Computed example of a mutant assay.
Amino acid sequence: MIDVGIIGATGYAGVELIRILHGHPQVHIRALGSVSFEGQDISDIYPSLAGICPQKLLATDEVIDACQVIFASVPHGVSEEIGRKCVDQDKLLIDLGADFRLTDPEDYKEWYKLEYKDPELHKQSVYSIPELHREKVKGAKIIGNPGCYPTSIALGLFPALKACVIDPDTIVIDSKSGVTGAGRGLSQTSHYPDCNEAFSPYKIASHRHTPEIEQTISQIVGRDVLITFVPHLLPVNRGIVSTIYSKLKTPLSPKEVHELYAHTYQGEQFVRVMKEGQAANLKNVRGSNYCDISLHVDTRTNRLIVVSTIDNMVKGAAGQAIQNMNLALGFPEDMGLHLAPLCF
């Protein structure tokens, strides 16, 4: 059994890690950390965990000292110090924040208004969407877990980009996320009277996930690519739907596109390519580690339209982090992640 700890355990992604890791057969949740609620029982914050995870919330250093694997679900700018302590103690850090996602420090400085304090540490880190980067993960000591929007978008675009059937300079991405994507902290936009019965774009062409999306697309294509990305806030708890538009280089039929995606993702346990004529719906992935992808061709405009949907708290955060842990430790990639989606 591997002793694991969660720093930032009272956030939405942190408590989702607890829920999923509780059913993992090869790990033991040894320690939970929280700056805001240190000393309290986790069940005082989340009564649903009463009798399931009877643990007091500890300081960050106590979690690191007690565990072999550390999950950090903390704001950007915090994980570097945690990463240094983990590396020095030969422990695995899986960071669900933004500190180890971007390879270019100038991008981090521009979009997050901070600088890397420990550049050598970043050279030891690996960014991993498992379906795209799994060969890099085994033996890694720091894993940058992708953002939720970038995960849905990269999985939605990968087959078409890899096969060079679309023009990457024409990509336009329209994404919608549930309110949990904003985190547990209070804000006006996620306040119930403002988000209920509402639907609005936000951070138009300025969202911090933009450089991460461009980084992944550029690596697949082999050159720098800029995209148009507009996120929206849905009045639901969880889930992401990304609708992605791009120009086909040559006309393809819906059947040809479907065959391309089905072949690319053949054998992938957590990517489900839907049947022709179906449309992906976030309702069908809630609570699971699946990404559902539906494919549509606008023959009149010669555009490919990809709809990609995930649960932002599972495949977009905690589930994918556990998938990365499994890869790093040599466990079966799907271990502990056979979570059937909620039906309602």
Rank of each mutant, 00 (worst) to 15 (best):
I7L: 10
G8Q: 07
G8V: 03
G11C: 07
G14P: 07
E16H: 04
I18M: 13
I20Y: 08
H22W: 11
H24E: 12
G33D: 06
S34Y: 03
F37D: 13
G39D: 03
D41C: 12
S43T: 09
L49K: 03
I52F: 08
I52G: 07
C53S: 07
P54I: 11
Q55F: 10
L57P: 03
E62A: 12
V63Q: 01
I64L: 05
I64A: 08
D65G: 10
I70Y: 09
A72P: 06
H76G: 13
G77I: 14
E81S: 13
E81D: 15
C86G: 05
V87F: 00
D88A: 15
K91Y: 04
A98P: 03
D99Y: 02
P105G: 09
Y108L: 15
E110C: 01
L114F: 06
Y116W: 15
P119A: 09
P119W: 05
Q124K: 15
Q124P: 05
V126E: 00
Y127K: 01
Y127N: 03
S128R: 00
I129R: 01
I129G: 01
E131L: 09
L132W: 01
K138A: 12
K138C: 02
G139I: 02
A140R: 02
K141T: 12
I143C: 04
I143F: 00
N145R: 00
C148V: 02
P150D: 03
T151A: 06
T151F: 06
S152V: 07
S152C: 13
A154L: 04
L155P: 01
G156I: 02
F158T: 07
A160E: 03
K162H: 12
A163E: 11
V165Q: 06
D167Y: 04
T170N: 06
D174G: 03
K176F: 09
L186P: 07
S187W: 09
S187P: 03
S190W: 04
H191M: 15
D194M: 14
D194N: 14
C195N: 14
F199G: 12
F199N: 11
P201T: 10
Y202M: 11
I204G: 10
R208F: 14
H209W: 11
H209C: 15
T210L: 14
Q215R: 08
Q219P: 05
I220V: 15
I220G: 10
V225H: 09
L226T: 15
L226F: 13
T228Y: 03
F229W: 07
L233K: 10
R238W: 04
V241W: 04
S242Q: 12
S246Y: 09
L252F: 09
L252N: 03
K255T: 14
V257M: 12
Y261Q: 11
Y261S: 10
H263I: 09
T264A: 14
Y265L: 07
E268R: 12
M274D: 08
K275V: 14
K275I: 08
G277L: 05
A280E: 06
N281K: 10
K283I: 04
N284Q: 13
N284L: 13
C291H: 01
D292E: 13
D292K: 08
S294M: 04
S294V: 00
D298Q: 04
V307Q: 13
I310G: 02
D311H: 02
M313F: 05
V314E: 01
K315T: 09
A317F: 02
A318I: 01
Q320D: 11
I322D: 05
N324Y: 07
N324A: 15
N326P: 04
L327S: 10
G330I: 07
P332R: 07
D334H: 14
H338A: 12
H338P: 06
L342N: 12
F344E: 13
